[in-house]
């Protein structure tokens, strides 16, 4: 009986020792689906450089990222919106000090099916469409087709940015379809001739048509100089500044290195220029 207890204790000790030695090489990233591709690309790159490093990336929405950081469940929260005051408050209550790192810029292109002759929208027109005042492409010079409105789910930072930048926090129409991720928005728009949607810049390719908003096309250049009206920074939050020399530090500063910028560009987002950080 005694020997068994001892063995059990020893095993537990050994296990916790193993866990302790591995703790420093484990990075858990949780949060936004928009920032997901960047986080995944960074993780892939760093892990191929340091085989002992383990990074897991969850894409469960910006709010979930904030929650995980506050609960101490992840080291990095990726967010496509800044933290809300009540989230910061909750973090402070739990003794967590969230520090924001802007890692890239993103546009919020408004996309339609490539068969749509639409030449451009103003913010007001986009608002009217999503508010339910404009229900047919006819009113925008298009053919007679009912508009199918696609939105990100309410649990995303992308949705909140859209609400803030386009909708002025007015409500979306009742018949807006909600989908769970940026990729799903693109898929729905790509398969639906009368659809309109919005997604992160990195998710927009030739299968859908991004339209100019207020006469400006969403591109890396227009997002960076802020002439495209729907642009936003993407964040990674950590608990305090990461110590230099740690993998966590390497992960967060990767976006400032040429390699990191190349990665950001490769997944379709806009890397920051030197000194361009707000």
């Amino acid at each position: 009986m005694h020997t068994r207890t001892i063995t059990a204790t020893l095993t537990a000790l050994a296990l916790s020792a193993v866990m302790a030695t591995h703790a420093g090489e484990e990075i858990v990233v949780d949060g936004s689906t928009t920032v997901g591709p960047i986080a995944k690309a960074f993780a892939e790159y760093l892990m191929s450089q340091h085989p002992s490093l383990r990074i897991s990336v969850s894409e469960s929405g910006s709010g979930n990222g904030a929650k995980s950081l506050i609960n101490g469940a992840c080291q990095v929260a990726t967010m496509s919106r800044p933290m809300k005051p009540q989230e910061t408050l909750a973090a402070q209550v739990k003794g967590i000090n969230p520090v924001a790192h802007i890692i890239a810029m993103d546009g919020l292109p408004i996309i339609v099916h490539p068969s749509n002759p639409l030449k451009g929208l103003t913010i007001e027109q986009a608002r009217d469409i999503y508010f339910g005042r404009i229900n047919n492409w006819q009113f925008l010079g298009g053919p007679n087709a009912r508009i199918v409105r696609i939105s990100r789910d309410t649990n995303s930072g992308t949705y909140e940015c859209f609400m803030e930048m386009v909708m002025n926090k007015t409500r979306l129409a009742n018949n807006v379809e909600y989908v769970g991720s940026n990729g799903a928005v693109r898929q729905r728009v790509m398969n639906t001739p009368a659809a309109i949607g919005y997604a992160g810049l990195g998710f927009v390719d030739a299968t859908v048509k991004a339209v100019p908003v207020n006469g400006v096309m969403p591109t890396a250049a227009t997002v960076l100089d802020n002439s495209y009206p729907l642009s936003r920074p993407l964040f990674m939050y950590t608990n305090g500044e990461p110590a230099t020399g740690t993998f966590l530090h390497a992960f967060l500063t990767l976006c400032q290195t040429p390699k990191g910028k190349e990665l950001i560009q490769a997944v379709g987002f806009v890397p920051l220029v030197e000194g361009g950080q707000q």
Partner: peptide
């Protein structure tokens, strides 16, 4: 989670 490494057996608890 959506992306992650293969879990080792002692990781299952956390």
């Amino acid at each position: 989670v959506s992306v992650g490494q293969t879990l080792r057996i002692w990781d299952v608890l956390t």
